[in-house]
Amino acid sequence: MIRILLTEDQAMVRQGLKMMIETDSEMIVTGEASNGKEALELCERNTFDIIVLDIRMPEMNGLDAARVIRTRWPQSKVLMLTTFNDYQYAMEALKIGANGYMLKDADSEALIRSIRSCLSGGLSLQEEVAAKVIPQLLKQTAVTSVDASITPRELVIIRLVGEGRSNQEIANELALSLGTVKNHVSQIMDKLELRDRTQLAIYAIRHNVV
């Protein structure tokens, strides 16, 4: 069962999101919080597979909570959820290391698909968000050559990560075992001194690999 912490300051919205998520029989909301501070307190006492965070909340917002979660509980995935279609929020979330960014107007299928993508190692960006974020990434950073230590096989894997593919999808496409792909991704991040897959995806975009 996939354990989810749902953090949203409006109770009615939170209950609606919970109902949407739990239409999937493999997902259960095992924790609810109304702000980032409460979310961190729940993380202290419980283990969650994924933490869904609203951006704007009282006491502690979702971005500040995500920074702490990525540092203290890196095994938990983070999905940012907001009504604000603003690339600056998404850019900040990606820099923090969030695994996905969705708008609240997404339907239940899109939300569940995004949660599964985050859990499988993919980078989930709603199309409207990606359309704003990717051009900004390209605009802000000059394209430079890929590190010389990267092998042709690793370059292909970087490209697929940049496209938002999960480890399983990469394994299927390249006819490799899941464990082999995980090892490749880990080695690539070590070579490039990157913290997580989100940073690797951004690296792929910045270096024109995608």
Rank of each mutant, 00 (worst) to 15 (best):
V185L: 09
T83W: 08
E38L: 12
M80P: 13
M12C: 01
I55R: 11
C118T: 04
N99Q: 15
I158H: 02
N172K: 13
Q126N: 13
L81H: 11
E26M: 09
M80F: 06
G179K: 11
D49C: 14
Y89I: 07
A39M: 05
L123E: 09
A201Q: 13
V210D: 06
L5E: 02
R113F: 15
Y203T: 07
I205R: 04
A65M: 05
E169H: 08
E163R: 07
I55T: 07
M20Y: 03
L194P: 03
D49M: 04
G62Y: 01
L192M: 10
E163L: 05
V52L: 15
T180S: 15
E44A: 10
L6H: 12
V143Y: 08
S177M: 06
S149Y: 06
S124N: 06
L17Y: 01
W73K: 11
E169L: 10
N172E: 15
P74L: 02
D54T: 10
S117I: 03
S166G: 02
T23K: 15
P135Q: 04
M91R: 13
A175L: 10
I2E: 03
P58E: 14
M80L: 14
I21Q: 00
M102E: 10
A171H: 08
Y203I: 06
R197L: 03
L40P: 09
V161N: 04
F84M: 14
V161P: 01
S76V: 11
I4K: 03
T47W: 09
M102Y: 13
C43W: 04
R116V: 00
V78K: 00
N172R: 10
V29L: 12
D147S: 05
T47I: 14
L94D: 12
M80C: 09
R3C: 05
Q187I: 08
A130W: 05
V210H: 02
S120T: 11
M12H: 10
E44T: 10
L79H: 08
V52N: 02
E169G: 06
M1E: 09
V29G: 13
V161Q: 06
Q10L: 13
G121M: 02
N172P: 00
R116F: 03
R113C: 12
E128T: 12
I134E: 10
I134V: 13
K104I: 11
L155R: 12
K18Y: 01
L42D: 09
E38S: 05
E127N: 07
E173I: 08
G162V: 01
G100L: 15
V29W: 06
R56F: 12
S108G: 00
E22L: 02
N85K: 11
G121H: 06
A106I: 13
